[in-house]
Simulated assay, not measured.
Amino acid sequence: MADSDEESSSAASSDEEELLLSETGRKILRFVDKIAKSKCFQRAAENEFIRRKFEDLSNTPLLLSVEVRELSGTLVVNIPAPPTDRIWYSFCVPPKLDLHVCPKLGQRELSFCHVSDWIEKKLQDEFQKVFVLPNMDDISVPLMHAGMDESLSSSWEDPAAAHR
């Protein structure tokens, strides 16, 4: 059994990159904080036109469109013996995963290559943590319980019911 929240070996190689990004993020936040505290910005924020634009921006949805262009690899499927309603699956090795992400601010598409590439890499790393052995994901197939005795089926789903 493996914990998908633990860092995998592929994620360990990107620790330096994450540290650099977090430091850069902190620098940007400090810079934005300094600007927000400046008198010039405070006066500008009191302007009705600018205030309305800030409100419009804060109510604008932030969307992320992800297109999976290709996913190919060897998949392992585990169907445990009855009584069960779960099928477990995972890739043996990291699959070929080609993603295209498109962040949007409202209807406007953001075209920052570095941001899109970073999001794609994070999604691929997370995919590997969840769907590559030793980690597995499962799906419930209620149809697998269709032919079972109802009392056996309900006691399997609720272990406390078996002792009543």
Rank of each mutant, 00 (worst) to 15 (best):
L57V: 10
I50M: 07
I139M: 09
R108S: 13
K129W: 00
D85R: 11
I119K: 05
S140G: 03
T74A: 10
K39L: 06
I119W: 04
L71G: 04
C40A: 15
K122A: 15
V32Y: 11
L99H: 00
D5K: 12
F127W: 03
P159H: 00
R108A: 13
D15P: 00
L97T: 03
F91E: 04
D125N: 10
N135L: 02
D158P: 00
F91I: 02
A11L: 08
S90H: 01
S72A: 08
L105Y: 11
N78V: 13
Y89N: 02
V66S: 04
F49V: 12
V130A: 10
V141Y: 01
L57R: 07
D137Y: 08
S65E: 13
A11D: 11
S151L: 13
L71R: 03
F112P: 02
M136V: 04
V132T: 02
L71A: 02
R26I: 07
P103L: 05
P134H: 00
A44V: 08
F31N: 10
E55A: 12
S140Q: 09
L143T: 05
A45S: 15
K39C: 00
L19K: 13
T74W: 06
D85K: 12
T60D: 02
V66A: 04
I79D: 07
S153T: 12
K53Q: 12
A160D: 13
V76M: 09
S22F: 05
S4I: 07
S22T: 09
P80T: 01
R86A: 05
V68E: 04
D158V: 10
P80L: 01
L75N: 03
E120Q: 14
L105A: 08
F41W: 10
H163C: 11
E70G: 06
R86W: 03
T74S: 14
T84G: 06
E6K: 11
L152W: 06
V93S: 12
L57C: 10
D125Q: 15
F31H: 11
S10T: 13
I139F: 04
